[in-house]
């Protein structure tokens, strides 16, 4: 994985500290061209990986990228699935069964309901695989070396101790997509324990890591210790803690931590993108020179 990954929250009205800013962003990025322009700005700053939710609009972005193979040569996308609100709203609307009927492709579900509950109870992992395939359709022909499970699902499975399901995601991604599975979580130390106990070695885990301990469940100290003592491939997100930490201080903290392979951030403006990238390079270089 590259040192810096570009995120997509700013494109889809996800803002952890302001609903007003969230709406302003959704207006700013109402056209797909605005998203592409920002991705190009990030590419020009050296970020060749876009980590994105399987939001409907990402399908359009994939089309644009596929249409220009030369321009996007070497460009990677890391899909994060599912786009949880799509399903959460559907569950409120249609119930669990209605939601599955809507999203599971083909007539699999139709025959399954006809076949009744007994048949159903044996095939949950197949349903998961079908849902993964349905989410992955939009990325056809695009390089997706890492495929993530979104935090709401990861953490729900973690809370319900559904180890087998979490581990199956890992195996299916490897088998079907020749890619690595990644997990986004707000409970990194607990997830690592569960994955390791399920035989997943050195997993890719993306979690909130920031100087103020925001969304670091179990506490900042536990996170720092886990990074120091355990083997996994860590991606840090929410490094600015939604804006609570000034950029310089935030990046300095992250770059000083051991074992963080990549840093995920999203930004809308050229200035913010360039500032964050150069801060990461600056503190990475500083660390190298201090070390050797």
């Amino acid at each position: 994985m590259e040192r810096i990954l570009f995120g997509d929250n700013q494109f889809f009205a996800v803002n952890h500290i302001s609903d007003e800013k969230a709406m302003a962003q959704s207006i700013k990025f109402k056209d797909d061209s605005a998203i592409i322009n920002t991705l190009d700005t990030a590419r020009n700053a050296g970020i060749q990986t876009f980590m994105c939710t399987t939001h409907d609009r990402i399908g359009n972005i994939c089309d644009i990228i596929r249409e220009q193979p030369e321009k996007y040569m070497g460009y990677k996308m890391y899909p994060c699935m599912p786009y949880a609100h799509k399903y959460a709203n559907a569950v409120t609307e249609l119930g669990v069964t209605g939601t599955l009927k809507k999203f599971v492709p083909g007539n699999f579900i139709g025959s399954m309901f006809k076949g009744g509950v007994a048949f159903l109870s044996k095939d949950y992992l197949s349903i998961m695989e079908l849902l993964i395939d349905s989410e992955m359709k939009m990325f056809k022909g695009i390089d997706t070396p890492v495929i993530f499970l979104q935090n709401v699902i990861t953490d729900m499975l973690l809370g319900m101790k559904m180890k087998e399901v979490l581990v199956s995601f890992h195996h299916y991604i490897a088998k079907k997509y020749n890619a690595e599975a990644g997990y986004i979580t707000m409970n990194m130390p607990a997830l690592l324990d569960l994955l390791e106990s399920g035989g997943v070695k050195n997993p890719i885990i993306c979690s909130s890591i920031n100087k103020v301990g925001f969304r670091m469940s179990g506490g900042k100290e536990l996170y720092e210790n886990t990074l120091k003592t355990r083997q996994f491939r860590a991606i840090a997100m929410q490094v600015l803690a939604g804006g609570a930490v000034p950029a310089k201080e935030a990046i300095s903290y992250i770059c000083d931590l051991p074992n963080i392979e990549s840093i995920l951030f999203g930004a809308s403006s050229r200035a913010n993108i360039q500032e964050t990238v150069s801060l990461i390079h600056e503190f990475d270089t500083k660390k190298l020179t201090t070390k050797y």
Binding site: N187, F214, G219, G242, A244
Partner: peptide
């Protein structure tokens, strides 16, 4: 912001 006003939790879901 919520970041200034929220107590951390042991397990986070939604």
């Amino acid at each position: 912001y919520v970041t200034d006003l929220t107590e951390p939790v042991e397990y986070y879901l939604r």
